[in-house]
Amino acid sequence: MFAIYKKELRSYFTTPLGYVFCGVFLAISGFLLGITTLYSGTVDVSSFYQVMIFACGILVPILTMKTFAEERRQKTEQLLMTAPLPIFKMVLAKFLSSYTIFVLSLATGCVYFLPLSTYGTMNAARTVGCLVAMLLVGMVFVAIGIFVSSLTDNTVTAAVGTIVIILVMVAASMFNGLIDFYPIRQALSWISVYGRYTYFTYGIFDFSALVYYFSLTVVFLFLTVRVFDRRRWA
């Protein structure tokens, strides 16, 4: 499993994809930090990270699009599938490698706090809360991306499909408040990745949200494993 993890990480940096992702991630987060936090003259980063979720909805799919789609296109998945290695380990290794890149980018983005903190004292709890929330949301996004990538052998399809799913999930929580009918509202809140995010921005550690994000990740990784099982049995 570690071998695949290593290979995936390596391939992010032997192809431009890894650099492009990190670069664009940092550029966009710098830009968004500028217009959300710096312009309004505060040192509160919560609104910045709220907007960042949307950016991640577009960036993360680019990170995950080739995980399985490319293997299938190049027919290299046959090597992985005929190796003495359970499928879930293969899926997990791919997930972890993409997530590592995401976490690295997010961590590097924290350098923006240095100039920011010279303007005033940042609220540590809220900042950490936001970062933890981003880590969790990113985890779900990566899992979704991996899942969609396993469905196709076309990287572009994988990326667009992931973007659509993520945006629907994020949008679900926004329309949530507009709907009067309780069952629909309840149903929408199940897939509302965004709604559970809010507590973290107040610096409150919401344990139920933690469970929610983790279970959602597991669900998508499980579905990915099922995709491979189904293809074998189909």
Binding site: K7, S11, T14, T15, Q74, K75, T76, E77, Q78, L79, T82
Partner: peptide, 15 residues
């Protein structure tokens, strides 16, 4: 127990 060469060799071109 098996070594397998599929119809199209499973090679990573960037390696």
């Amino acid at each position: 127990l098996i070594g397998f060469l599929p119809e199209q060799p499973p090679l990573y071109h960037d390696m």
